[in-house]
């Protein structure tokens, strides 16, 4: 009974209260924030960069920056907005680094074609696609999206953020977020339609 009450108390403490406590030196509050956000940030970054190990490094770096820059946080913004902005910026830096690296690396260029193994369109009807293969294909399609579409699609359709918060996280106007989500969804559909095409109707 006591444990449940304590747990309920912990949950009822908002992120903003925790970061405020951390700003005045309560390191335990930081630990709670880490526990609250580590997995959801990992999933966000993993879908962004497509590599689990890199994603975990970026989440580590995100919390390190929260720790070191705690005084830059102001109450006007939600803590989630702030921490996702930091993580998103680090993820974009990682993608830019890979792009630069790719230009100079011949081996990456050679591997790329082998790596992108979307199954033959004629032999992959929806019902036959195993869920893990399907996940892999969706992840690759997300990875192929330009960064500006990728980030909004992940935040909206995978992480379930409201458009307003996405606008704050990315520091772009609400209308831009909406139009990017729309274009991102259409691009994904274009790329993945071979997976979901309906059975051809008989023409009698």
């Amino acid at each position: 009974m006591i444990t449940k009450t304590e747990e309920a108390k912990k949950v009822s403490v908002t992120d903003e209260q925790l970061i405020a406590r951390f700003q005045v030196g309560d390191v335990q509050a930081f630990d709670i924030l880490v526990r609250r956000y580590k997995d959801q940030l990992l999933n966000f970054i993993y879908r962004f960069v497509g590599n689990r190990s890199d994603a975990e490094d970026i989440v580590q770096e995100t919390f390190l920056r929260v720790y070191k820059n705690k005084h830059y946080y102001k109450e006007i913004a939600k803590f989630s907005t702030w921490v996702y902005t930091i993580a998103g910026n680090l993820a974009k830096t990682e993608l830019r680094r890979r792009k630069r690296h790719k230009i100079f690396s011949v081996s990456n260029f050679v591997n790329e074609e082998r790596d992108y193994d979307i199954p033959d369109r004629e032999h992959s009807p929806e019902k036959k696609v195993d869920s893990s293969i399907q996940e892999n294909i969706i992840q690759k399609a997300i990875g192929k999206l330009p960064t500006k579409f990728k980030e909004v699609i992940i935040l909206r359709d995978i992480q379930g953020f409201a458009y307003e918060e996405i606008s704050q996280i990315l520091n772009i106007p609400l209308g831009t977020v909406k139009s990017r989500v729309n274009r991102g969804r259409l691009k994904l559909q274009e790329d993945l339609k071979f997976l979901y095409e309906a059975e051809p109707k008989s023409t009698i």
Binding site: I158, R185, Q189
Partner: peptide
């Protein structure tokens, strides 16, 4: 129809843990 399915599939993507 396909956008709707893709959206559902993305919501169901497996979650990973640290």
């Amino acid at each position: 129809r396909q956008i709707r399915i893709i959206q559902q599939s993305m919501k169901q993507l497996p979650q990973i843990s640290t």
